[in-house]
Amino acid sequence: MRLFRSDDLLGIARETMEFVLEASEATHPNEYMGFLRADDASALDIDRDGQVITDVLVIPGTESSPMSASVRSHMKPNDMRSVGSVHSHPNGVLRPSDADLATFGQGEVHVIVGAPYGWGDWKAFDNEGNQRTLEVLDVEMPDEHFFDFTQEDIDRELGDANDDRGGFLSWLR
């Protein structure tokens, strides 16, 4: 494990881009907004120095409308994996507005996704609003065990909540 990560941003994982497109479409006609997070390429078995965008962090309390999305900045964690932002433009315009440029200060890449939210309906920009290249990479995503459970586990816990042994949901009684 290296102490310092390379600052080179190699691209975005295909699975992450699929999530962004789906989340943007699901939020339509309101804007979608999140923060992009990256993993070291070596953790993804890529034999190059750099980082790959693998996650989107959505901040609790994000408010969105068809014209804008706003984040409570005090809710954003000091995240060492943060590399930029993503948001949608329901009107389909794939260029940053003046308001967008005012929020592009943190991170090195900012993705704008436009309706109808297909593979050709997004662009990446730098902090100044200049379009930049962001390659979509086919990588094996790291295992996240935060939600490491099955439907059988849920059913078992729900069943346990109805007997005298307690269980995960027993506090609901």
Rank of each mutant, 00 (worst) to 15 (best):
G118D: 15
A43G: 02
R72T: 13
W119G: 01
P90W: 11
N78R: 15
A161L: 06
R48V: 04
G166Q: 13
E15D: 13
I46L: 15
D40R: 11
G166C: 09
E140F: 09
T150F: 05
T150L: 13
M1H: 09
M141F: 01
R5G: 08
D148E: 03
D153T: 09
A26L: 00
D121R: 04
G159T: 06
S85A: 05
R37V: 00
M33V: 03
M17P: 02
H110D: 07
L57R: 08
P66Y: 07
S70Y: 13
D79H: 11
M67T: 11
D79P: 00
W119E: 08
L9Y: 10
I12E: 00
H28T: 03
L169K: 01
V52S: 12
D47E: 11
G84A: 01
V83G: 08
P66G: 03
I59K: 09
F168P: 01
I46S: 02
A161P: 07
H74V: 08
A102R: 12
D45S: 11
V136I: 13
M67Q: 10
G92S: 03
G107F: 06
L94F: 12
E157K: 12
A102F: 05
G34S: 04
E18S: 12
D138P: 12
D49E: 06
F149L: 14
E18A: 13
L36S: 04
F149K: 13
T54Y: 03
D98E: 15
D79T: 10
D39G: 09
L57H: 05
H89S: 07
I53A: 07
F146L: 04
V52T: 11
K76N: 00
E157L: 08
E157W: 13
S73F: 01
N162F: 12
S88K: 05
D153L: 07
E63C: 05
T27R: 12
M33Q: 07
S68M: 07
H89Q: 03
F4T: 00
F147M: 08
G92T: 05
N162R: 12
E15K: 14
D155I: 08
A102P: 06
M80L: 10
F168T: 15
S85K: 00
F168R: 15
D7T: 13
H87A: 09
F104T: 01
